[in-house]
Design a protein around this nucleic acid. Structure first.
Lengths: 196, 196
DNA sequence: CGTTTAACGGAGCAAGGTTCCGTTTCCTCA
DNA sequence: TGAGGAAACGGAACCTTGCTCCGTTAAACG
């Protein structure tokens, strides 16, 4: 099978072996450091952990957002793909929405500082914000539309707003035993139901 | 009449005139800078605006939290005091709660970066977090209890959690026309209602 | 092998928070 | 009123962290 080298676009060349190796090393190091120090951990710490210079990090991941995205891409994709599946397997669209949001919340609250880094104005993190939104807002829209069509929820809520709200509720959810983001998100989703 | 010097505690002495003057100057400068640059504005900016050295800021307000608290104390107090009044004047406790939360949200969304600074883990900002909570959680508890007693809302929600949730929803609410914190908070409060 | 050049590493600069200490200013009391 | 002493001031200096730049290393290929 083909190696990780991408030769398809014509002008592109195979990557050097050390570059490939370092990229993998960096991703592992970053993931480890993110767990202990959060996604805003100093660049030098990640570099030290990986045993490379700081310049190498910036060459592979020009902004911190790029690094964070690379580390969590698989999980975000999995979450996005779960949307349609839940819609098909749940009793009602609103139930599917609730379960999908749960998935998203589970992801966020287990990644120290990630929810906080998703702020749109957070300079340098706009790529991160954009990636999450590009990937997840369409899925959320689909679920929301289905629930609205079924007459379950009040109309007028936008997926973007809901995603941001849920993301915000997850900020600081680790590290505070008296704050349960899941419960609040549940309230929020309940509030979405059409009031009779 | 007595000057601002507090001589009551026995060991305390009158403050020097220049110190009193500088404290006032600093509060004004900080308030102005917070409006344009948010509550995380560089210390040097505030010092420059006030025409004092950075040392002077740290002497009067050892941590940034102390400065922020001093700037917004009046408004927080006003919000706290509005709670019982609303409870007395509203049709139902849940309505009072909703209106009180509105007050709080209005306050937060008009203070650039304040909601974000309220995070409990935000090193150096714990005093800020504690002050807001000490002052507002009891008020919120009172409203919540009244609504629970009236059978309007589902039991089991803690004031602390609700306040943090509302605060989180307000993060980044300025500077993003597509994100309306008020609407989401409204959903959250609606979700509090006992489901029939 | 020798050449080319991608990739590396870390010194160094900028920005911001915080401390420290020599200087200034105010208060008090004779 | 005018020393003397202490409180308060100011900003230089230091630390941490993000990011860049460029001399050095080593992979790839003929």
């Amino acid at each position: 099978m083909a190696t990780q080298a991408d030769r398809s676009a014509g002008a592109s060349q195979r990557k050097r072996a050390d570059a490939v190796r370092n990229e993998k090393t960096l991703l592992d190091a970053a993931a480890a450091v993110f767990v202990t120090s959060g996604v805003e951990a100093p660049v030098r710490d990640i570099a030290a952990r990986a045993g490379v210079g700081t310049g190498t990090i910036y060459r592979h991941f020009p902004t911190r957002a790029d690094l964070i995205i690379a580390v969590y891409r698989h999980q975000v994709e999995a979450c996005a793909e779960a949307g349609p599946a839940l819609l098909a397997s749940s009793a009602t669209p609103h139930a599917a929405l609730g379960r999908w949001i749960d998935l998203f919340v589970d992801f966020l609250v287990t990644k120290r500082g990630l929810a906080g880094a998703l702020q749109p104005d957070n300079a340098g993190f706009d790529t991160l914000h954009a990636y999450f939104l590009d990937r997840l807002v369409p899925v959320c829209t689909q679920l929301l539309d289905a629930a609205a069509e079924a007459g379950e929820i009040r109309p007028g809520t936008h997926a973007y707003e809901l995603m941001r709200g849920v993301g915000n509720l997850c900020i600081g959810a680790d590290s505070d035993p008296n704050y349960d983001a899941r419960r609040l998100v549940e309230l929020l989703i309940a509030g979405l139901l059409r009031q009779r």
